[in-house]
Design a binder for these strands. Structure first.
Lengths: 117, 117
DNA sequence: CAAGTAACTTCAATATCGAAAGTTACTACC
DNA sequence: GGTAGTAACTTTCGATATTGAAGTTACTTG
């Protein structure tokens, strides 16, 4: 089901907020991009350099989907050569609460994980 | 990288708790199964009947992975015919905090979603 | 004009998903 | 005894997604 179909039908899988949230960020990479943006990263290059090593094809796709989902916005911060900065919307920044819960869980239940900064 | 490789090397993608948590529940279905178990569902059939319509092949796979990840345990609650009950471990129940954050986010930012119970 | 860089895009191989049908082991009904 | 039903999976296979690598575009810098 594409975005248009979803919009016309209302909901993809159910009306559950969990299901609908997972339809936007329920994959292995999206929340890592949000994490990086929350940490101040802004450019494609910075995002691509994170330790998890996201493939650039996936990064481009996720940036597109996150923008379609209203989580981020992109804007050229300079012309010649054109360079883009990605920033979180209010909706995107609010995912910080979800990430916080995930970090707390991970640090408690996945031994050896650690946060920096 | 398979589970054995991960175990021997320590970590799949990085030491970030977000990345490691997503390696366990970072997909479209796992947290929906956890949601249902938190809501008291216990059997394969009950889980399969949720409104999102999880394919049974995916459900069987996720139950296996969640058990390997220490999120759930399974036990036969009767013989002849044998029937299994899935229950959350303490580690699994603790994901309730993550789900709560997701629900709050979804209800605020995905218009039309709603919780029952 | 050669080299470098950011931001992508394309490609081919592999892996995973999803819908449906099939399997196993039993109980219940006629 | 035979047919139907049920829970819990497993199998199949075409469609879709992921991955790692290489290629492209538009510029700047030396």
């Amino acid at each position: 089901m594409n975005a248009k179909t979803k919009k016309s039908q209302g909901f993809a899988r159910s009306r559950c907020p969990v299901a609908n949230t997972l339809d936007i960020v329920g994959d292995k990479w999206s929340l890592l991009v949000v994490r990086d943006l929350l940490h101040g990263k802004q450019t494609y290059k910075e995002l691509a350099e994170s330790p998890e090593g996201i493939p650039t094809s996936i990064l481009a796709d996720r940036l597109k989907r996150l923008e379609e989902g209203g989580i981020i916005t992109s804007a050229a911060y300079q012309e010649r050569p054109v360079r883009y900065a990605y920033t979180l919307t209010e909706k995107g920044k609010a995912l910080g609460e979800v990430l916080l819960a995930i970090v707390r869980w991970g640090k408690k239940y996945v031994p050896g994980t650690q946060t920096f900064k």
